[in-house]
């Protein structure tokens, strides 16, 4: 009798790329809902728009590259990229900015480099950096968190704002937006105000900004889920958060009145999201375990440096991209000791 042949191993684990991406999406849901709760449902409209655009752009490039479209679109990676970028943007970001950001993320940062697995830079962060450099004012238009806002928008109104770019009822952007806690801390510390004075503002919650700290908590929960189902490795989030806490503890201890504390840094802006969902993008992260510790540590240091001395209040996207550039070097020098090379005799 004749048989078909195949290369060993002749069995397989039940795992695939789509499953990995699916778990990432599951883990993002609680934090996303918290975001919608505190900053309005605009984020959900942006999300739908961004996903549609991401899939559309990806299909377009695949068609131009004469590659199969369906298997790539169904792997869920474009979905995750779109989702992460939207989470980093204000909830009422106009549609054309979403289009530009997603366009850069999917077409330039991902597909022009060869598609999934070949991108040296995190696509979502590339999209974000393009937007913050090109449209710095629009990127700061964060509405006040729900509990402090005088004016909140429903789903329909949010959609109108996003697609028309103008506010209803002759409202001005100044009336509905507020500086983020990171922004305020940055500008007011610059004006030589004491930290305690700054943090008296109702914008500040228990650890970080009102709303922000809870969004952070829910993303933290999603991150723990990803650790539990072994989609991500503990090393990058651990070294990122640990380094951030140590570095900001040092700066805080050096001048407690003029520096924000470690918990504030952790729970304001996108640190938690970055630690569990962005820096852990495996494609643009180092291969080895020790390399990953270095990578997380490097991102945290860049975040602190940019927040402390740089021109941007948050700095996560730049920190991630800067460390993306270091990854090939890390991979070249940091290799695990192979079995028998560290031999004990």
């Amino acid at each position: 009798m004749q048989f078909e042949t195949s290369a060993s191993p002749h069995n397989n684990d039940v795992n695939n790329v789509a499953r990995v991406m699916r778990h990432v999406i599951y883990a993002l849901i609680p934090g996303t809902l918290a975001y919608a709760w505190f900053f309005g449902p605009g984020v959900l409209i942006n999300l739908a728009l961004a996903i549609a655009l991401a899939l559309g752009f990806e299909a377009l490039v695949l068609k131009l590259r004469k590659q199969a479209i369906k298997p790539v679109l169904s792997d869920g990676s474009a979905l995750v990229t779109a989702w992460l970028l939207v989470l980093a943007l204000p909830p009422l970001t106009p549609w054309w900015m979403i289009a530009i950001g997603i366009g850069f993320a999917i077409i330039v940062a991902k597909q022009l480099y060869g598609g999934l697995g070949y991108n040296p830079f995190n696509p979502a962060m590339v999209g974000y950096v393009v937007l913050i450099i090109s449209f710095p004012r629009e990127m700061t238009l964060w509405p006040a968190p729900q509990e402090l806002a005088q004016q909140s928008f429903g789903l329909w109104q949010s959609a109108q704002i996003i697609f028309s770019g103008s506010l209803p009822n002759a409202l001005s952007w100044d009336a509905i937006t507020m500086a983020t806690p990171l922004d305020i801390t940055r500008t007011q510390l610059g004006q030589n105000m004491m930290l305690s004075e700054i943090q008296d503002s109702p914008l500040f919650g228990t650890f970080g900004g009102v709303g922000w700290e809870w969004i952070g908590n829910w993303f933290f929960l999603g991150g723990l889920y990803l650790l539990k189902v072994k989609i991500i490795d503990w090393r990058i989030p651990f070294s990122l958060i640990a380094t951030l806490l140590i570095a900001t503890t040092l700066t805080y201890a050096s001048a407690p009145d003029a520096q924000a504390g470690p918990m504030f840094h952790l729970f304001s802006g996108g640190v938690i999201l970055a630690a569990f969902f962005i820096a852990t993008d495996p494609v643009s992260a180092p291969a080895s375990n020790r390399g990953r510790l270095i990578y997380g540590c490097g991102i945290a240091l860049f975040i602190v440096i940019i927040r402390q001395w740089g021109g941007y209040p948050d700095g996560i996207a730049f920190a991630v991209l800067l460390m993306n550039m270091v990854v090939p070097t890390i991979d070249h020098y940091i290799k695990p000791a192979v079995f028998g090379q560290s031999s004990k005799e």
Partner: peptide, 15 residues
């Protein structure tokens, strides 16, 4: 399939 050896490292035989 007809394998000589185990499923992890065995050789798939054609006959």
């Amino acid at each position: 399939r007809l394998i000589m050896g185990g499923p992890m490292m065995g050789l798939a035989l054609h006959s």
